[in-house]
């Protein structure tokens, strides 16, 4: 399995490179939005699956990134500058929100982020002079690098793919570093981790802020992808959607959020023939999945796998770590 892994990864990247070739604009667009929602979901997975805190503002952080990028590129600055500003501001807002909320335990981050997301929506909608109100902002140009333009959808897909791979690699690096390993320790046994000298609160706060920064990056990509942003794309409902992505895929698994994002984004296409009943079926499937496999689809996969390999010890994710 371990020896196969690099090969599988290479195959995955190759598939991602080949996927959009010869496809229509709509499919390429859908793939792009899958990539950027995967980035946002990956960030939320760090907060939720590894640090065990529920954030209900990931769409809000995407909104911060999207609006900052839109405003800066509309003012004539290069996307490269805007994206750094987006990531840094999401990170800073994450620190500001998380610090007081994590002072008190457990589920308070969920409540504070919920309020924050709704407040942010109101500000985006009401401050028309800056944000354009409910009409939003439009006409952001897609960036070009060293003379290479990303104006065509295919070019923008590869651009998003590069960002996605960089984000995924940084996440992998974060999780493999001693700092990231500390999360696993925290999740499996917080009391023991603390007794070994881990600063639980600081660790959790940083995880939340980094997770939020991933949201900012996703927003910075969404702005040039859609070339039109409005407040309701970043409403609380979308934060819940991102939460669904992470949990449906499998919180605390590296590939969970990508799988979850694929399900949440592609399922409407698959269920298109059901017309209006799509959301009903979707909601029903989520409930059934949660009842049978609270670890999401990857958890379900592991469960099936273990029925064939009974000696494999079950993961103990989410037993201690995640509390709301």
């Amino acid at each position: 399995m371990t020896r196969l892994r690099p090969l599988l990864l290479l195959a995955g990247v190759a598939a991602l490179i080949l996927a959009p070739i010869g496809q229509g604009n709509y499919i390429v667009y859908t793939l792009c939005s899958w990539l950027l929602f995967s980035i946002a979901a990956m960030g939320l997975n760090l907060t939720l699956g590894y640090a065990g805190q529920v954030s209900l503002a990931q769409a809000g952080f995407m909104g911060i990134g999207a609006y900052i990028t839109a405003l800066m590129t509309l003012a004539g600055m290069h996307w490269g500058v805007a994206v750094i500003a987006s990531i840094l501001s999401s990170f800073a807002v994450g620190l500001l929100l998380g610090y007081p909320a994590l002072r008190v335990q457990h589920h308070f981050l969920a409540f504070v982020t919920l309020a924050f997301n709704t407040l942010l929506f109101l500000v985006l909608r009401n401050e028309e002079d800056i944000t354009g109100g409910s009409f939003g902002l439009s006409g952001m140009e897609r960036p070009s690098f060293f003379g290479l333009s990303t104006d065509s959808n295919l070019a923008f897909y590869y651009f998003s793919l590069v960002c996605f791979l960089i984000a995924a690699f940084s996440m992998w690096w974060i999780l493999r570093s001693p700092w990231g390993r500390a999360f696993k320790a925290l999740r499996e046994n917080p009391i023991r981790a603390e007794s070994l000298g881990l600063k639980v609160r600081r660790q959790t706060l940083l995880a939340f802020a980094i997770g939020s920064a991933f949201g900012g990056l996703a927003g910075a990509l969404q702005s040039p992808l859609v070339q039109f942003i409005e407040p309701s794309s970043f409403a609380l409902m979308h934060s819940l959607k991102l939460l669904l992505m992470v949990v449906v895929g499998g919180a605390g698994f590296f590939f969970g959020p990508m799988l979850g994002a694929a399900v949440v984004i592609l399922l409407p296409e698959v269920l298109r023939f059901t017309e209006g009943y799509y959301l009903i079926i979707y909601a029903f499937l989520v409930i059934v999945l949660m009842v049978y496999s609270p670890n999401g689809l990857i958890g379900l996969g592991h469960k099936l796998f273990e029925t064939f390999k009974p000696k494999h010890e079950a993961r103990r994710d989410l037993k201690q770590g995640v509390q709301l």
């Binding site: 669904l244 949990v247 009903i280 909601a283 029903f284 409930i287 949660m290 609270p294 037993k319 995640v322």
Partner: peptide, 17 residues
């Protein structure tokens, strides 16, 4: 028995349903 989080997700989905 699975803790609070899956239940939170399930109630979100239930509301949507």
């Amino acid at each position: 028995p699975h803790g609070t989080l899956p239940l939170v997700i399930a109630t979100i989905a239930l509301g949507l349903l």
